[in-house]
Amino acid sequence: MKHVVAFDVSMGKSTMVIYDRYRQCEYEGEITHNRYSFEKLNETLITLTQKDGQAPDIVFEATGVYSKPLERFLGD
């Protein structure tokens, strides 16, 4: 089983929650939509991938222009 990373996107920032394989919340916090936060998010995603042996599922609702920076980062 793998982790799930969920985002609640708003203008310029997102609330991020990481759930483990047992659907327990491991982390909840806020990230801003900037380079520094996306670099930290990338490190987190790499760590979770190494831990589980597969990439985590990522869930968020596309909110038009607010979610574009996150979509762009995840697409890259």
Score class of each variant (00 low, 15 high):
residue 65 V to T: 07
residue 22 Y to W: 01
residue 6 A to K: 02
residue 70 L to Q: 07
residue 68 K to R: 14
residue 21 R to F: 01
residue 4 V to N: 11
residue 59 V to E: 08
residue 71 E to G: 05
residue 60 F to S: 13
residue 55 A to G: 10
residue 58 I to T: 12
residue 46 I to P: 09
residue 35 R to M: 07
residue 70 L to V: 04
residue 65 V to P: 12
residue 59 V to R: 15
residue 20 D to P: 12
residue 22 Y to D: 00
residue 41 L to C: 09
residue 14 S to V: 05
residue 45 L to G: 10
residue 38 F to V: 04
residue 15 T to M: 14
residue 15 T to Q: 14
residue 1 M to V: 03
residue 8 D to E: 10
residue 35 R to W: 00
residue 64 G to V: 03
residue 38 F to T: 05
residue 12 G to E: 03
residue 47 T to Q: 08
residue 74 L to F: 02
residue 17 V to N: 05
residue 71 E to A: 13
residue 33 H to M: 11
residue 9 V to Y: 05
residue 68 K to D: 07
residue 39 E to G: 05
residue 32 T to R: 08
residue 69 P to Q: 11
residue 69 P to D: 06
residue 49 T to E: 15
residue 17 V to Q: 02
residue 70 L to Y: 03
residue 21 R to A: 11
residue 33 H to I: 09
residue 72 R to Y: 03
residue 76 D to Y: 15
residue 76 D to V: 07
residue 22 Y to I: 00
residue 39 E to Y: 07
residue 10 S to G: 13
residue 53 G to F: 09
residue 36 Y to N: 14
residue 51 K to C: 09
residue 41 L to K: 11
residue 68 K to N: 10
residue 46 I to E: 15
residue 30 E to M: 08
residue 31 I to M: 15
residue 3 H to T: 01
residue 31 I to C: 11
residue 74 L to H: 01
residue 18 I to F: 14
residue 18 I to W: 14
residue 37 S to G: 06
residue 4 V to H: 08
residue 1 M to Y: 04
